[in-house]
């Protein structure tokens, strides 16, 4: 018997009324994500993939269809499933420690301090415990937000183009950091991106979305083990396959 999926999206559609007309953003999306799987949702900017993630996260209500997590319908945001925004989500008035401990208000002081110390170290922010976000670089802010999410021990993470605002070198470093953290903390991860390389480097499966109204064009399994060789024929073949699916030629 196969275990039930962690996340199950069933016949999901989303329509926004605008003045006079109705815009269909998502059209009958069906997707199942296994426990512990890292799924990248890949699509061009503005295709509705963020809307999809917001619905799965419980921040938006779909026009029709349902999202089930652990076979329970999602009714709203939940601390068991944390959404990570592009670095802007950290609280600027709190220090690194304050941010990481933000979601731990139900714990006693000792356990709280222990968890803060652990996750600050895990994301490589040791020595910056008392720094404020404005004193950190973009990459560090992003790590901070990931640490704050992990500290409450969620079983699902939603990442909405988390590295989109970083420079390309920091972005590469952050991807390998994410994979390292994932080895330490097994989480189910839904990762929205418009970056084809990012999806091939990170994902177990890549869900390719079409332009509006977004539907699932194809789901591509990335059958490569970590660490992935970015110049191997398989990597290039998968990247070209995704490029083709997105509808772009191989040459610029």
């Amino acid at each position: 018997m196969t275990p039930p999926p962690k996340v199950s999206i069933r016949g999901l559609s989303m329509r926004f009324p605008t003045d006079g007309s109705v815009i269909e953003v998502l059209s009958s999306i069906d997707l199942e994500v296994k426990d512990g799987e890292l799924v990248c949702i890949l699509g061009p900017s503005g295709c509705g993939k963020s809307t999809l993630l917001n619905i799965v996260g419980g921040f938006l209500k779909a026009t029709s269809g349902a999202v089930l997590i652990d076979e329970q319908e999602v009714a709203g945001p939940d601390p068991r499933r944390i959404f990570v925004f592009q670095e802007r989500g950290v609280f600027p008035w709190l220090t690194v420690e304050g941010n990481v401990g933000f979601g731990l208000f139900r714990l006693g002081a000792a356990e709280r301090a222990e968890r803060i110390a652990y996750y600050v170290k895990l994301v490589g922010l040791s020595g910056f415990e008392n720094a404020y976000p404005q004193e950190l670089s973009g990459g560090m802010k992003q790590r901070l937000e990931v640490a704050r999410a992990l500290a409450v021990n969620p079983d699902v993470l939603f990442l909405d183009e988390p590295f989109g605002a970083l420079d390309s070198i920091t972005r590469l470093v952050m991807r390998s950091e994410l994979l390292r953290i994932r080895r330490a903390e097994k989480k189910t991860i839904l990762f929205v991106t418009h970056d084809i390389d990012e999806s091939v480097q990170l994902a177990d499966r890549v869900v390719v979305m079409s332009t509006r109204p977004a539907t699932i064009r194809r789901i591509v399994e990335i059958d490569m083990s970590h660490p992935r060789d970015l110049s191997s024929p398989r990597y290039i073949a998968l990247r070209d396959l995704l490029l083709g699916e997105i509808g772009l030629a191989h040459k610029i």
Binding site: P77, P79, R81, I82, F83, G89, G103, V152
Partner: peptide, 13 residues
């Protein structure tokens, strides 16, 4: 107040 901060607060319950 930036909506992302409100949503982050809500997300943590």
């Amino acid at each position: 107040v930036p909506p992302t901060l409100l949503r982050a607060g809500r997300n943590f319950g």
